[in-house]
Amino acid sequence: MREAMQGKGISGGRLAIAIPYLWLLAFFLAPFLIVLRISLSQSVIAQPPYSPVFEIVAGWEGLKAFVAALSFENYATLFSDSLYVSSYLKSLEVAVVATAMLLALGFPIAYAMAQAPRRLQAVLVVLVILPFWTAFLIRIYAWINILQREGLLNEMLLALGLVREPLAWLATDTAIYIGVVYSYLPFMVLPIYASLEKIDHNLLEAAADLGCPHWKAFWLVTLPLALPGVAAGALLCFIPIMGEFVIPDLLGGSQSLMIGQTLWTEFFGNKDWPIASAVAVVLLMLLVVPIAIYQHMQTRDPRAGSA
């Protein structure tokens, strides 16, 4: 194919690159530049047509005027208003705690999957993926059925005599955690399973042969080798949870919002587009941190399961 791209089929090869490239430039990169620009615009004049609008034809003078009109006012607002700060913190808290819960729940499942006989493993993988294919919204909705005041959970607790009167499950942080853990479990289980499943069984035999009992080999061999999967799973869960909107909106309360909800409210409720854009830019910058850590881990350790 390289010949195909560079030799006779030059035009075809170029086209294969150019089409998706231009598409992504137009619909992925450009929108983010616009977000960045609008986040630096004045709130009052921000609704379309918002200012400053950058006119290429205006040339150098236009550019100077454009830069002069940029304002960091929105960012100042973000950091001074406790609403935004507490939203970021709330998101961070939910993401950290939920990722830890997912890890605690997902690792034993992934480990059990990797221990299962080969044929069963394939079935288990499908079983774990299957709920992911049913719509996200449906899965959250399913929990509303269970968690609402007259829901099954309260009915069950009442029937068992564990509580005297129905508890409020919906509109609590507990509900958010249940929803998040439920929705993201496959994203944690599958990468861990993939790295566990790749471990050469001979390594565990070698450990036993060298005098290492089974439980100790888990700590000394299995766990270190599963670490790439754990990191990938944690990243795959942490980042989207940070920006989660649907779960806290449907299951959580209104007293403390996650940052996704704040963005949504600023945009749809308050119609304050510059602030919403600034919220998005800061969120993105926050998310660069875990990605950078992950990248660092990967480049530091290039062995990638060489056996």
């Binding site: 001979n202 450990a207 042969d209 009992p213 060489s306």
Partner: peptide, 20 residues
């Protein structure tokens, strides 16, 4: 006697070196 207690040691065909 489980493998980890046996005074025998094995060299595996794949060598089974711990990659980490």
């Amino acid at each position: 006697m489980p493998p980890h207690r046996r005074p025998v040691n094995m060299m595996f065909q794949s060598y089974a070196l711990f990659p980490h």
